[in-house]
């Protein structure tokens, strides 16, 4: 089928401001948007720049604003969008070139929540035991692929780039609710700071944007409640 694709472009070496490029091409309905973008790059315009790697929604490289919604380009098919497709970089992070944004501020927020296992007890000779029920509590938040689709769909983040954002809270949740981990107090204190989780206004954009179907707003609420209970 024929599609018209509009892509927001910006080359820092040549352009003062972003502009739209339009392409018209034949694709299959079952193509991923990433396939379409690849086809444009490989056959029509080699300079088009974007990140991609695994092409099936696991590596988190290709989060983009597609027809106004944050998605992974490799996880949305042409037939689900129709013949008019628009692609822009995700919002709230500095654009470096075309669809490539500076991910450093995003990873800095992630790193700020101590996103690693903390348990200084002596290690047992076998695995640490954990019941399937305890494991289930934080199952959803272990799925995060750090694609930034959630954080860059958050209106609070758009207006305040220092807000740690949903992705960082999701990763804090993954450890706070892990029965084996001992770092919850420290992480909750970080969450409680001025640009921490109280900035969340439950807009639900993050939950809708997540390509891994993590119930992000629910996870954020769980962390909020945990913080209140521990204070009480």
């Amino acid at each position: 089928m024929k599609v018209n694709v509009k892509i927001k472009r910006f080359n820092p070496e040549a352009d003062k401001r972003p502009y739209w490029s339009e392409y018209s091409l034949d694709v299959r309905e079952t193509d991923r948007v990433l396939d379409v973008i690849n086809q444009i790059k490989w056959e029509m315009d080699g300079s088009l720049s974007y990140r991609r790697s695994c092409a099936h929604g696991i590596c988190g490289s290709d989060a983009m604003l597609i027809n106004g919604v944050n998605r992974l380009a490799c996880k949305i098919l042409v037939k689900d969008l129709g013949a008019e497709i628009s692609v822009e970089p995700i919002r709230g992070l500095p654009v470096l070139k075309d669809l490539i944004v500076d991910m450093e501020p995003f990873f800095d927020s992630y790193k700020a929540v101590l996103p690693f296992f903390i348990n200084e007890d002596p290690e047992p000779p076998t695995e640490r035991y954990q019941s399937p029920e305890d494991r289930e509590i934080f199952d959803a938040t272990t799925k995060c692929i750090l694609c930034a689709a959630c954080t860059t769909s958050c209106p609070v983040f758009w207006t305040n780039g220092r807000y740690i954002g949903p992705a960082a809270i999701v990763n804090a949740h993954r450890f706070i609710f892990d029965s084996r981990d001992h770092g919850a107090d420290e992480r909750l204190q970080i969450m409680n700071q001025s640009n921490g989780l109280w900035r969340c206004r439950t807009a639900y954009n993050c939950t809708e944007a997540c390509p891994r179907d993590i119930p992000i707003t629910k996870a954020i609420e769980e962390v909020k409640r945990e913080l209140l209970w521990r204070r009480a």
């Binding site: 080359n11 070496e13 040549a14 790059k41 300079s47 720049s49 070139k97």
Partner: peptide
Amino acid sequence: EDKGKQYNTE
């Protein structure tokens, strides 16, 4: 085609 230096993915 792209002779640029930054993010020359081509």
